[in-house]
Nucleic acid binder design. Sequence first.
DNA 1: ATGTACAAATGACACAGGTCAATAAGATTG
DNA 2: CAATCTTATTGACCTGTGTCATTTGTACAT
Lengths: 256, 256
Amino acid sequence: MSNASGVIPSNAMSTLAQQNPHFRKRSQIACSKCTLGKLCLVRNLDEDETEQFENIVNKSRPIHAGEHIFRIGDPLDCIAAVRAGCFKSYVIDKNGEEHVLGFYLPGEIIGFDAIDGKTHKANVIALDTSSVCGLSFDSVADMARQLPSLQEELFRVMSAQISELESNAADLSAEERIARLLCSLSTRIARRGYSPTEFNLSMSRRDIASNLRLATETISRVLARFQSAGLIRVNRKKVELVDLDKLRELAHRDTG
Amino acid sequence: MSNASGVIPSNAMSTLAQQNPHFRKRSQIACSKCTLGKLCLVRNLDEDETEQFENIVNKSRPIHAGEHIFRIGDPLDCIAAVRAGCFKSYVIDKNGEEHVLGFYLPGEIIGFDAIDGKTHKANVIALDTSSVCGLSFDSVADMARQLPSLQEELFRVMSAQISELESNAADLSAEERIARLLCSLSTRIARRGYSPTEFNLSMSRRDIASNLRLATETISRVLARFQSAGLIRVNRKKVELVDLDKLRELAHRDTG
DNA sequence: ATGTACAAATGACACAGGTCAATAAGATTG
DNA sequence: CAATCTTATTGACCTGTGTCATTTGTACAT
C-alpha cells in the first residue's frame, strides 16, 4: 500500500506521470478514424476541434488480460478511454476481499473518480486483451475551457455516471440485478453496432458476483433459472439473450 | 407522471425554467458573506471571481419541510446549492415504493445527475425548513470556461460524488451501513463547524431505511443495539455519537 | 491422450434481515 | 386534554441468499 505504484513499473525510478507504460506517447491516433466512430469524448466536436483533441490523446500498446492500468493511490495523470477489450475496477477491503465496482467497455471513460483528491481510488485491470487511449486530465480540462462541446460532453458523461450509480443503488433481488447487468451490457455493446442479444461475458462469474454483491453460486443458479425459463442461453462466457423484453422488464423495476 | 411539473406551480401556464418559484430571482446573495463560509462552489475563487459568480446565483425563499424543489422530468434549468436545512432525493418504483437515493446537507450541490439528458432524474424534497441557491447550469458552465478554479471545483465535486456512490455500492451488513451513514452525517456536519458527535437526524427512520436498503425495523433494532453497546445515544431525532472511533471502524470496512 | 488446475454448477443447511402483528410514544387536531 | 394519527419500537416467525462441500466441466501443459 505504501508503494501505490501503477502498472508493473519496468523502470522503478520513473514517475508514473511520465513513464506509465500504458500511456507513454506512441502514436497520435486520429479520433476521426477511430473504429469506435466518435463514440468517445469527441462525439460532439467538429472536424477542427477533433483534430485539436487528437493532439492530447496517447494511444496505449495492447494490454493483456490481467494487467493493471491504474492502481489505488496512483496520481491522477491520465484518465483512460477504452478503445477495445474490457476492464474492471475494484478495491480490496480490510479482510482482503475484492469488490468489483464496475466494468468498462469500449467508448467508456475510466478514472473520473480520481479527480477529487487527484489520485485513483480503484484498481483497474484488463479482463481481455484491450487497449486504451490515455488522456492527461489537465490537458482535457484546459481544452474543455476552449471547446464548449468538449466541456459539455465531460459534464454529460460524469453526470451519466452519477445517474447510473444512483440507480444501481436500488435494492434489487438477485434475479433483478443479474437481468439488469445483462441488459446494461447488451445496450452498451449494441451502441457500438454489435449484436445486443449475443455476446461474450469477459468477466468471470466471480467478478459478476462481486459487482452485484451476490455469491458466485447465486450467479450460476440464476443464470440456470433464466435459461430454463427460456430467457437466455448460456454456455460459459457466451450468452444469448433470447427474450430481451422480458429481461428488461425484470431489470427495470424503477420508473419515475 | 405525464405532468412532471415541479414545485407546486402557482401559475399553471408558466414554464418551470422561468417560474420555478424556488429559484426566481429574489436577491443577489453575497457568497463571500454566506454563512457557509465559502464551503460551496466558490471555495477556490478569489474575490473578483466570487463577485462574478454571485451574479448568477439566485437565493430561494425559505422552503418548508415536505416541499419539492425538483421533480423527475423537470428540465434542467437549475442545479441547487443547499444553504440551510436538509433534502432527500428519491424515486418511485413500479410498485409505488419510494427509494431514497441520498441526503443533502448545507454546502452540497443537488442536480448533477440531471446534466445528462437535461432533465432531473430524481424528486428532491425538503426534510426541514431549508433554503437553497439556484444556479442556472448553463451559466455555471459558461462561467467555468472563464474561471479555471470554478471548472476545477465542478469536476472535483462531481468526481467526489462518483467516488462516494461507488463506495456506497459495497455489500455491507445492516450495522456497517448504519454506522457509515452516521459517520457520513457526522463529518458533513462537522465540516460546517457544528458538533460531529451530537446532531439531529432530519430524516425519518423510514427514509434512512429506504436509503440504506433496510427495513425500518432493522434501523430501530440496530440503533438500539448501538445504544446498549455504548456507541451512541438516541432519542427520536437526536443522536449523540458516544464512541465515534468505534463507529468509524465499523463503517470503514474498505481500505485500498 | 492424460493429468492438472481452475471455473462453474449443484446440493444441503444456516442465518441475517425481511415481514407481519402488536404496542408504545409523540405529534396534531378539535 | 381527549381523541386521533403518525412514527418508532419490539417480538415472533419466515425466506432469500450466503456458506460450505462436492461434483462436473473446460482449458492448458506435458
